[in-house]
Design a protein around this nucleic acid. Structure first.
Lengths: 199, 199
DNA sequence: TTCATAAATATTATCAATAAAAAGGACTAC
DNA sequence: GTAGTCCTTTTTATTGATAATATTTATGAA
């Protein structure tokens, strides 16, 4: 487990972007970040490239990087992509579902409902969604979905922070119920509505 | 319009990977590539990171990069992702379709049918697919589709190279016809079958 | 308004350190 | 006595630091 410096910087920056500490459009200056992390600009550069790859930053050639915008049209785009990709993943996941997977999903659901603050809930919500899709065994698809979840999380922090209250998520419970019955169509339908509701 | 060195190296490497000159699993050594391009390892490193971002290479930390594998299961994954994402893009594209877009699509179709060798056809085929989807005006979705097209192209070069013959693509013509009639459902149906046929 | 110059910043090169793999040798077990 | 394994050493490649170069943008004067 050799954590490379670039990796550390990447995680730090992506987290700050997700929670909104680094707002959209903010310039990401290499040597500024390098000084903050007490390192040279080389690993910073690598971290920035990875941010760009995951859609969290955009590069203007020879003019540096900025935090990626997150306008309403792109949020809608992300939601629609999530609907079709997560539905696809779920179809396959249902076919491979083992009792162990069901158990893991139930556990993730309980963790999610038990979250007492919004950042915790957000992280556990992502875990729940990932757990129910992982059995599809399609790594490329899962990676794509992860990136979309990150974009969704940014939107969530930006627009739902104030309104969040602790509650039991009925959608999650309904999805789990459908999974238990191996009812792929029902699960997909609920999941679709659930995702669109986040808009 | 200053093409950065890293950009040049990225294009060179990705092209070699797509056509199969760099086979899956091949080690991508920084200083070797740097010497070949008469430059230092720094821009090479940036190019490799971009390859990884687009799914053409995989990095093993502290052990370098290798050309990404392309096993049958991942090809199927790519095809299924293309079906749902291109269908989604097409639905939106049909709504925004202008006469100019139709004209551009017809032109791309003609270019594609006129291709006399397989690499030319492959490039123009990608152009056709991009042209009919571009009006959807969803940049993130289009980027995702581009990456999937690149993966498809790798598979195409690996498995269809021998069998390719010049011909008029009936699917393309049928899609164009459906687009002219603003028939979103028909266009999506043909496109889905068309993509799956590539497997 | 336009051109020139200066300052800031990204990009690339050269140099250094660190981590992993490979090779070689010694010790132990059979 | 031989073979196999483990440890040490050497080599190689990636990662990181420092320095120089080029490009862009902003500012000021003509």
């Amino acid at each position: 487990m050799t954590a490379t410096i670039a990796d550390t910087i990447y995680r730090s920056l992506s987290q700050q972007i997700i929670i909104g500490a680094l707002p959209a459009g903010e310039k990401l200056r290499q040597d500024h970040i390098a000084r903050a992390h007490e390192t040279s600009h080389v690993p910073v550069r690598e971290a920035l490239l990875r941010l760009e790859a995951h859609g969290l930053a955009v590069s203007e050639p020879r003019r540096g990087m900025r935090v990626a915008a997150l306008d309403p049209s792109e949020v809608r785009e992300v939601i629609e992509m999530r609907v079709v990709l997560e539905t696809l993943a779920l179809q396959h996941a249902v076919q491979n579902l083992t009792p162990k997977d069901i158990k893991a999903a139930a556990e993730a659901l309980a963790q999610c409902d038990a979250a007492e603050d919004m950042p915790t809930w957000e992280a556990r919500n992502r875990v729940f969604h990932r757990v129910i899709l992982t059995p599809c065994a399609m790594p490329r698809l899962l990676h794509a979905i992860d990136d979309l979840h990150i974009a969704s999380a940014r939107h969530f922090f930006a627009h739902w922070q104030r309104k969040w209250v602790q509650r039991q998520d009925a959608d999650h419970a309904a999805i789990l119920q459908a999974l238990k019955g191996r009812n792929s169509a029902a699960a997909s339908g609920i999941l679709s509505r659930h995702i669109r509701r986040m808009l």
